[in-house]
Design a protein around this nucleic acid. Sequence first.
DNA 1: AATGAATGAGTCTTCATTCAT
DNA 2: CATGAATGAAGACTCATTCAT
Lengths: 198, 198, 198, 198
Amino acid sequence: MRLGKTEEKRDSILQAAAKVFSKKGFYQARIEDISREAGVGKGTVYEYFSSKEALFKNMLVDLNREHFETVYEGCPPMGSVVRRLEKILVLHFKFIENQRDVGRLLIESHFSLGKEIHLWLWELQLEKIKDLAKIIDAGAAQGEFRRDVDVYLAAHIVFGAVAAVSGMIIMEEIPSGKLENLARNTLALVLRGLKVDT
Amino acid sequence: MRLGKTEEKRDSILQAAAKVFSKKGFYQARIEDISREAGVGKGTVYEYFSSKEALFKNMLVDLNREHFETVYEGCPPMGSVVRRLEKILVLHFKFIENQRDVGRLLIESHFSLGKEIHLWLWELQLEKIKDLAKIIDAGAAQGEFRRDVDVYLAAHIVFGAVAAVSGMIIMEEIPSGKLENLARNTLALVLRGLKVDT
Amino acid sequence: MRLGKTEEKRDSILQAAAKVFSKKGFYQARIEDISREAGVGKGTVYEYFSSKEALFKNMLVDLNREHFETVYEGCPPMGSVVRRLEKILVLHFKFIENQRDVGRLLIESHFSLGKEIHLWLWELQLEKIKDLAKIIDAGAAQGEFRRDVDVYLAAHIVFGAVAAVSGMIIMEEIPSGKLENLARNTLALVLRGLKVDT
Amino acid sequence: MRLGKTEEKRDSILQAAAKVFSKKGFYQARIEDISREAGVGKGTVYEYFSSKEALFKNMLVDLNREHFETVYEGCPPMGSVVRRLEKILVLHFKFIENQRDVGRLLIESHFSLGKEIHLWLWELQLEKIKDLAKIIDAGAAQGEFRRDVDVYLAAHIVFGAVAAVSGMIIMEEIPSGKLENLARNTLALVLRGLKVDT
DNA sequence: AATGAATGAGTCTTCATTCAT
DNA sequence: CATGAATGAAGACTCATTCAT
């Protein structure tokens, strides 16, 4: 299962890109910063990625894959959808917390990038929302969730709620130990709502 | 009630800035684009704002004020907090819808800007969240909302939810006529949650 | 002998120009600095002088006139040329010392200005050198100076020597009380030379 | 003894800088002029020098070194200090004449530059004056020069005199053949002074 | 395959000058 | 006459990208 030398170098560049882009944002990050961080020459970056934008996109795709593998695959469908959601939230918050800088990029769904790349990012986010929609749909099918809700809308709402709390974790530097509780509370609110039970 | 000529020009530059920054993002926007959009010379922009960054910040502050006046002040406390929230949501969604470009900037709380300005933006957002927290707190005090929720967390969640739906409105170009319904549904979900009533 | 209001304003602009140009040099000085220093509007400067360069030249001409009046006219031909030279040196050094900033400009015969203005400055300096040559010539005619010297060359040498000592006065902030002595020593060297008498 | 390619390029930029700065002065010279003169791209200049000012300073330091090597090192202490001075003057005048443009910069001790760089230039000049003072001091020690003169003052005077004559050479385009004679005459005046021997 | 020196297009910002009031 | 708001030409500097080694 060893990666070829080539694959290794490609990876180290992506790692470096994640670090530098996260810290400085797309426009402030310089290719040279990234190449130095990766310990390779500036020209080498262009051996593996055709442009700064391509590198950026690849980095995000990579990050998403890692996020997906950590959060969803590390948490397959199980009996209760609610339980699964709770587990997903915990894993997600931990992922965020483990990789502050990198996590910031995942939350920052919006960038001051050109329109084209902006749309591309929206697509990326939409996919996550659709994954969420499937889960919610499953919950409705199993009778755990109300059937009178617009699943697509609900997915957006849950996504936004989770993103906002993720931002809170990063910006307010919530300590690791409180994440499980935070996940539970967040989910509780999303599931039961604000209103007093009637 | 006439604005001085000077104030008028300052305003037209801010208007133009909102338009151009929204469309292109901070780094892609050129001062010249903005000055042309405003119908003034390039140098004139610098008569009113000391730098591109200063213009950007001023523009956001301005936008926030407008948003605040439209949404919150256009919707003072009333008997029911739930009713007030619903009204706020409708106004907010309409504000978003009316000024797609401009609205995009309000949602895009995160930019690929330098760390400093990024923090400044976070502060701006936090203020909005705190406004929300006050409303929720009032709801709890009046017995409309459950008392066992962390108000600060709840405010983040509502904020995130609303932001996500706002993004949906902009990106999927939801027609104006459906906004009231969308506001109702969003609020319903936030208030009652996903789970089936027990 | 009262100056008209107009003349007064023109003068205050020239004063301000001398101050600001001296402190910052031609390119670093901004017309606005000068107008503010003069207590007039920016546009007013252009009522009196057609351009920055014209203002600069006028200011130097003015300064030269003042210098000439102070130094040469305040010291008409008299019996001994040597005595006259000594008096001239004292007056010159005092002029320099009195108006450090302004004096600096007189010494700084060379500027990083465009070729054209540079030549003009050289002419200004050459006139002073020619005045000096006349004095030396008179000294030779009176038998005080050697007749075998090239008067024109000698004038350059004296001019350079005096300029260098003037620079010393400004840069090393020689106190006022030592100027007379310095003038005497400078003149002694110029008159008797370095070499031991044979 | 071959310079590395890199060193070569650095040098050609310095050469070009000397030429362009000399001709146009600091503020009128454009980096692009210099880069074109050097036959390199605009960006390349910044590979070697961090800013226009840094380039300017480096160029002057370089020039000074060259001047020093040509004039002083090409003329080591010998029996007679007077002889040495005469040789130095000849070499100096030839250096000036050989590199009119470049020489102009050496003479133009004063520029319309910011205060900071101005001070730096004064230091540069002061060093030369101190070198001169050492020579004069040696002359006094050897009994060739009078002992009752202030060596530091004398050095300033000689420096100023030489600078003024150098200016004459450049501005009046004294032909090469007359330089030796000019050096002799200049030195004679400096050594014996203007006054008739008593 | 890897490098980094070289490049020049692109942009913010300054400031002399103009001109409507 | 006096003003200062408006202008836009000009230039230092950055950095993605290329390419000879």
